[in-house]
Design a protein around this nucleic acid. Sequence first.
DNA 1: GTACACTAATTAGGTAACCTAACTGAATTG
DNA 2: CAATTCAGTTAGGTTACCTAATTAGTGTAC
Lengths: 156, 156
Amino acid sequence: MKSTHTTASRELEVGGEPIVEELTATFTDAVARLYRRLRAERGGDQMGESQRSVLKVLVGEGPRTLRELSEHEHVKPPSMNQTVNSLEEAGLLARTSDPSDGRKVIIAATAEGVTLIEETRRRRNEWLSLQLDSLSAEERRTLEAASKIIVRITNS
Amino acid sequence: MKSTHTTASRELEVGGEPIVEELTATFTDAVARLYRRLRAERGGDQMGESQRSVLKVLVGEGPRTLRELSEHEHVKPPSMNQTVNSLEEAGLLARTSDPSDGRKVIIAATAEGVTLIEETRRRRNEWLSLQLDSLSAEERRTLEAASKIIVRITNS
DNA sequence: GTACACTAATTAGGTAACCTAACTGAATTG
DNA sequence: CAATTCAGTTAGGTTACCTAATTAGTGTAC
């Protein structure tokens, strides 16, 4: 530790009230670090986070069009097209054209896709499970509450 | 909503105690979504999250070797080399060889790099700041506590 | 009923951030 | 002093995003 400190030692809160600017920086860093770590630690199935997220939507909420998926994941249609392509190649979803509107393409999980999501659900992210397991019950409740807040934020 | 529901409606906890397996899935999804959203929403400076994270370490904790940086960020040396290259090209850090060990390269932030980190610190991630601003003080405390837990987890 | 605009999906080409494998040169060890 | 190890780098590949441009179906206006 040199004397070049400029950020690490600043106050994060005043009287128990986190300062939004500080929280933004801290929170961004924490989330970015964890995301990279999750990507690095993921084992077993060779699906990426994006692919898995899309398949999970299809399995959990039923068929969707490309545009619907791209909006749900906050991604542009061509990006979602690529993700869908790779899942299609892997046989985890199938495209059928909408009979009532020839422009639309209905994207649905195949039986294989459903099976894969269900099977890998509990086995994935062993590293994170280990970490969470080592936390106190209160810390887990904190993360659970935070997860709910995060999902709410990202959907707004 | 079809009857194809398989995951969305499962219990997340029992008597206030989150189940680790469920929390792993929920938390992973939340973090992945937020990370993608942050990447999509980031404006202004054209530095990526990885680059900024490295520069922040150099500014806040002083010079490091390539290996040290790669270990700190949980990334392989060639990946870190690329990140360092782009920061070097932008004039935000400089390399000097270690006088006591010719194999090592000391990487340090330039004055420009220090300035940039300090200046952009508060202006970045406007979108997230807005979201955090709209939360209650208690929700912010939850996220702050979660951030600390996340940082601890990722460093272990 | 043909022309025009709008929309959905896709293709092409580019970028950022990771990876593995293979190489260079410096330091250490038998 | 030869062999090994170690730090950094180069080359080439992958995933997941982007913008711009294209194809094709739909609906509307004359």
